[in-house]
Amino acid sequence: MTSSTIKSHISIKDLNMHYGKNHALKNISINIPDKKLTAIIGPSGCGKTTLLKTFNRLIENVDGTNITGEVLVDGENIYGKNADVTNIRKKMGLLNQRPTPLPMSIYDNIAFGMSIHGIKQKGVLNEKVEHFLRVASLWDEVKDRLHSPAARLSIGQQQRLCLARGLAVEPEIILGDEPTSALDPISTKHIEQKFVELKEQYTIVMVTHILRQARRIADYVIFMYLGEIIEHGPTEMVLGNPQHQLTKDYVGGAIS
């Protein structure tokens, strides 16, 4: 390894994924850099969500999927025989397109993940709930109603709650599937700012449809088309000076 090699956190080798007969991911090989924000872009249906879900094995809950190849996280193949799926998932926080608060109070949303992983003492939980709500910049808005249902929060607040909830299980990686697409501009800004702060400590992979968003916050960009990675590299390269014709067309707005 030369000194210019970027340390990679997730390393994918010859990954192929089928939904039944639909070859959704084709020969994906890529390294996701450690403690950087990587954006996955590409037209609708190209496999961005699918690729993201292979990182934490959520994909295997979909019927009729068939996966070959390797996904190494911290050097361990998560599809290996001895891999423990709950441990793998615990390493990665997930933000969905629409926020998905659990059917419980704000407090319990954060405490749930910690308590299933063995943290039960009330004092520790209280402290951590406050801490992670602060990290997600939600504490001041909810500190007086921690025990009211999370479903009553605004959509933007719910998404920050989901972020806090994900961080509370102390992951190393944050996955976002168009995490701002359901949000208003101000909430979007909140989440973007958070991501920029968080990438100091976490590896972040985010699917986005919005090229401007990728330009604003991503360090690296992966461009996908029909299940393949067409081009990837530092943001200013892929978006500023694309090499491949398809990337040029996409960045130029000719395909969307």
Partner: peptide, 13 residues
């Protein structure tokens, strides 16, 4: 399904 996924992604069985 997203709710199921949210729970799984926290490492829940």
């Amino acid at each position: 399904v997203e709710l199921k996924e949210a729970s799984y992604s926290l490492g829940a069985t």
